[in-house]
Design a protein around this nucleic acid. Structure first.
Lengths: 305, 305
DNA sequence: TCACTCTTGAAAGGTATTTTCGGGGTGGGG
DNA sequence: CCCCACCCCGAAAATACCTTTCAAGAGTGA
């Protein structure tokens, strides 16, 4: 027997178990043992060399190679590659069981997977729910602004700072405030063409609403980034950007997903403004990189480049 | 440099593209060519022998093997198997999803979609590349810590604050520092059982490395959260948590995806610690909600919180 | 410019795979 | 009951592939 009937088909992709069953009757005893081992535990087999598989099945290398040929592969090497692929497929198949809530006794690997999955979900939800018309209006206001003030406390305060940092980098006059008193003091000085942004997940954080109200009443353009567009904050907002509200739990405080959501919105604002003011934004960005370069000390690794 | 940091993790299954991106900066030119070929066409590469891949990339067998080693595999043979697995997964799995870069004239809807997709990708990469052993060690150190100090500047400074805020909420004594001088001053006072965490994407931010070094030399347990595990910061870190490195561009500064990646790591740390100290963490969390409740003004909307 | 380190491919050295070859078992016929 | 022909099978040779070593070349800092 040479390769009388191995010719036609290319190497089998995933239908290996089926092929084994079909061909088993035409196999000799030793080859059946090999085929059985292969079909029974693709992952385990993929880790073995010819010699290893021969020993495991109590046969010889030659038999293993012959079996691989019979299954349609040029040699054992290729069978092994196919096996590795099959194993990977199987493994990825039973992955998405991470939707459950995080428990106290979850192993860390699960925690990582669940958190990552949840934040991905939050991003998708936020992107889907974001009103691009409102976003466009907000971007236009920002791009034309003489001065931008961002209000946020606690976790939202960090998002506020993030936005201010980014806007600064593209040459805008932006500042973030976490101190409610200073924020109000600051809001009093705003006028038309200035922009005030309030970030609050609950939509009802007094410390953030108050400065926005003051800014609103002084004629500034006001933007609210909130998870509750029906909240009090919206009363004083010209433009409302809605963040998504994901489920929370004891071990996964709301701050986690609301922060992710808020940051995406903030990034969208930033990129939008950068596009609109590209002429000045691009050189400003480049300059800020340049200015900070010497703060990084490239020694310590292997290559630097 | 031998295999200083290639040891810990077992061969990666699907996180290969992420790993390539993380390690690429520390690679030599030829190795980058190989890594690029591998990441660009896993299926095609899996079909090649060492010699074939060497010829394709215009390098030598030795370089190919070196690259495989750097990526965490014992040799080329194993890289090839992993590649076959990856190829199979891609084929059966979801769409290839090639995101174009963000252009100046992209409509806002596209900007939103691209940003969301990219951040999702970053999360997946980070989760896949995170070493749970290191993470576990870091969590254990944090849970047992008497005091926690977090160092970070600029965008990473916000992440540092986020972590400190969270740890505070579950009753840990944690503080974040952005001022390099104060950070060093603070680091001097640390001792054994204290924990210092440095957050730097580049791994070479002097302002952050310095306090970590001081803390390290005073016997504190040190943790580095960085995108460059081969960077200078790692020299003073007992535990290294690697964030993923995504491609960046003019309109999408590196700070964006590195921040997303860092935040996921920080969240994992937080949840891990909360699990370990559940007895004290749960009531502390509840108490902090309670204490802030009156700061939210429920008027104006439907629900409250 | 010189000394030094890091990078790289050629070639030697080892393993894994494939092929060859002959022993041993089995079934049919004498 | 014995012999012969056939084919399955594994040991070992042959080959292909992978890994390691080594020295020359490129790049870098003094």
């Amino acid at each position: 027997m040479k390769e009388i009937f191995a010719g036609g088909a290319p190497p089998a992709p995933a239908a290996l178990a089926a092929k084994v069953r079909t061909l088993a009757p035409s196999m000799t005893r030793s080859m059946q043992r090999v085929a059985e081992a292969v079909a029974g535990d693709p992952a385990g087999t993929a880790a073995l060399t010819v010699t290893g598989l021969a020993e495991l099945t109590g046969t010889s290398e030659a038999t293993v190679v012959r079996t691989a040929r019979l299954l349609g592969y040029p040699g054992y090497r290729d069978l092994r590659l196919a096996l590795a692929g099959l194993a990977a497929q199987q493994q990825s198949g039973r992955a998405p069981a991470v939707t459950a809530d995080i428990a106290v006794d979850d192993p860390l690997a699960d925690v990582v997977a669940k958190l990552a999955y949840d934040e991905q979900q939050t991003l998708a939800d936020t992107a889907a729910g974001l009103d691009t018309v409102q976003l466009g209006a907000a971007v236009a206001a920002l791009a034309a602004a003489r001065r931008v003030e961002v209000y946020g406390v606690a976790a939202s305060g960090l998002v506020a700072q993030d936005l201010a940092q980014k806007l600064l980098r593209i040459g805008q006059v932006a500042h973030a405030h976490s101190d409610p008193h200073l924020a109000v003091t600051n809001a009093v000085t705003l006028r038309a063409k200035d922009v005030a942004i309030a970030i609050t997940h609950s939509g009802s954080t007094g410390d953030v609403i108050e400065p926005l109200r003051v800014a609103f009443e002084h004629g500034a353009t006001t933007i609210a980034i909130t998870g509750r567009p029906d909240g009090l904050v919206s009363q004083y907002a010209d433009h409302i950007l809605t963040t998504s509200t994901a489920r929370e739990s004891e071990l996964r405080p709301a701050a986690m997903s609301s922060r992710t959501s808020q940051l995406l919105v903030v990034d969208c604002l930033f990129v939008g403004v950068a596009q609109r003011t590209y002429e000045t934004a691009a050189p400003a960005l480049a300059a800020s990189y340049e200015a900070l370069a010497h703060r990084h000390n490239p020694r310590g690794g292997s290559g630097s480049r």
